[in-house]
């Protein structure tokens, strides 16, 4: 499943996709002066070179060995681990939405609960307690002590509780 060649081809393919996206983005810059000192000059050069290098990565990958790096069983473990790993990112995205909808303290408590599960904790009682306590502590330190801006949740307004804990 995962030969060095296949891995490098995937890396090269992804790099190419990112590079082409960057190149298109660079070409989207409108000309202001119409001279050689345009502000798209460097972005186009950088992204163009990225495209060239990513093609070179693919070309190099073509000559690499095709033997499998890992067994099928290991691949299954890796797949499961990858799912768990991206679970962290998904919890992060949920956090962003919760922060917007419910405010900092509630978003922190819920996200802490979720991320602890994703990271492999299993005692739900302890997780819930840790999540609540850590949300209170984080609220006190960052919003209260350091005075970071604490926006009001769009769906639930817990500003009275936040102010009390801060």
């Amino acid at each position: 499943m995962f030969s060095p060649q296949k891995r490098e081809l995937i890396v090269g393919g992804l790099s190419s996709a990112v590079s082409v996206f960057c190149l298109l983005l660079a070409f989207s810059i409108e000309s202001v002066f119409g001279s050689t000192f345009e502000m798209r000059m460097l972005p186009v050069f950088l992204s163009g070179t990225m495209v060239l290098i990513s093609v070179m990565v693919i070309l190099k990958a073509v000559n690499m060995p095709k033997e499998l790096l890992v067994s099928q069983e290991e691949v299954q473990i890796m797949r499961a681990a990858t799912g768990r790993m991206f679970g962290v990112v998904i919890v992060g995205l949920i956090y962003v939405w919760l922060f917007y909808a419910l405010g900092y303290i509630l978003a922190t408590a819920i996200s802490m609960y979720l991320v602890m599960i994703v990271l492999g904790n299993s005692n739900h009682y302890k997780i819930a307690l840790t999540a609540i306590l850590s949300a209170i502590i984080y609220q006190f330190i960052f919003m209260g002590f350091f005075g970071f801006y604490d926006p009001v949740g769009r769906l639930i307004d817990l500003s009275a509780l936040s102010e009390f804990l801060s």
Partner: peptide
């Protein structure tokens, strides 16, 4: 699994606090 849960929370608030932007 405990340590990195707290690192996650700290990372999120640190990212937010630079410009108070979600």
């Amino acid at each position: 699994r405990i340590l990195y849960s707290f690192i996650f929370l700290t990372a999120i608030i640190a990212a937010y606090s630079s410009r108070a932007s979600i």
